[in-house]
Design a protein around this nucleic acid. Structure first.
Length: 229
DNA sequence: CGCCAGGGCCTCA
DNA sequence: TGAGGCCATGGC
């Protein structure tokens, strides 16, 4: 087994199944669960890869992927709740919504002028295209590599590896590549090192985020168990 | 108070 | 193509 795959096994052994992606209605069912300090709620549906199960959940993941761009999940969740409460968490409603209402609902997620525009563009696309390709997503204004891959992986269950800042931080420090390496190059490394199983890709990304939040915050450089493997 | 989050676009060499 | 500026809120 190669090192990238081995590290996945180690992270899974240490942290367990993460139960991404957070979904509003699934979260409500787990209302008694303790939110983590990062705002994510561990174990929404750990080890259960059957989500999204409804059209609403499907669209919610896409919306969350856009709203979370450079933004903490707590602020995103507030925006998602407000969208839902205002009957705006579906593509038709977002297309029809007036800008002021839409911006007000997503205000907590920051960059609301840009993100309102992004949501409208994406909602239009969502209504027209049943099974988008990566190239199609990337052609949309406001959808870059990470957002496109998050949508493909978590909403469409496609085996594409999501590369984020945490992935760069952890694996560059472990010596796999330089922190400025191109997105596509890092993605290719992971995709050729792992079986093409969307469940592994979903879990690995979630584990990387969890591990980074515990051991790789900017302010702390305390050693991490991975560095001893 | 300053830092920064589950990025991406635009501009200018 | 790559570096730098810009977008914006809220938790800590």
């Amino acid at each position: 087994m190669n090192q990238i795959h081995h590290i996945y096994k180690e992270l899974l052994k240490k942290y367990g199944h993460q139960g991404w992606w957070p979904l509003l209605d699934v979260a409500r069912k787990h209302a008694g669960k303790q939110p983590t300090k990062t705002g994510s709620v561990q174990g929404y549906h750990p080890g259960n890869y059957s989500y999204p199960q409804t059209d609403a959940q499907h669209f919610e993941i896409c919306t969350g992927a856009i709203l979370t761009q450079n933004t903490g999940w707590m602020n995103v969740e507030k925006a998602l709740v407000l969208l839902a409460d205002n009957g705006l968490l579906d593509p038709q409603s977002i297309v029809r919504a007036d800008d002021t209402t839409l911006k007000q609902a997503i205000k907590s997620a920051g960059y609301f002028n840009q993100k309102a525009k992004k949501l409208k563009i994406f909602a239009n696309f969502f209504l027209a295209e049943e099974k988008p390709t990566r190239k199609q997503l990337l052609s949309l204004w406001g959808i870059g590599p990470e957002t496109a891959d998050s949508i493909l992986l978590y909403a469409y269950k496609r085996p594409v590896f999501v590369v984020d800042a945490y992935t760069r931080r952890i694996f560059s420090r472990l010596g796999f590549f330089d922190i400025d390496t191109d997105y596509d190059e890092i993605q290719a490394l992971f995709e050729r090192s792992l079986p093409p199983d969307y469940r592994i890709y979903q879990e690995y990304h979630a584990l990387i985020v969890e591990h980074a939040k515990r051991c790789y915050m900017r302010t702390s450089t305390e050693p991490c168990f991975l560095e001893r493997i």
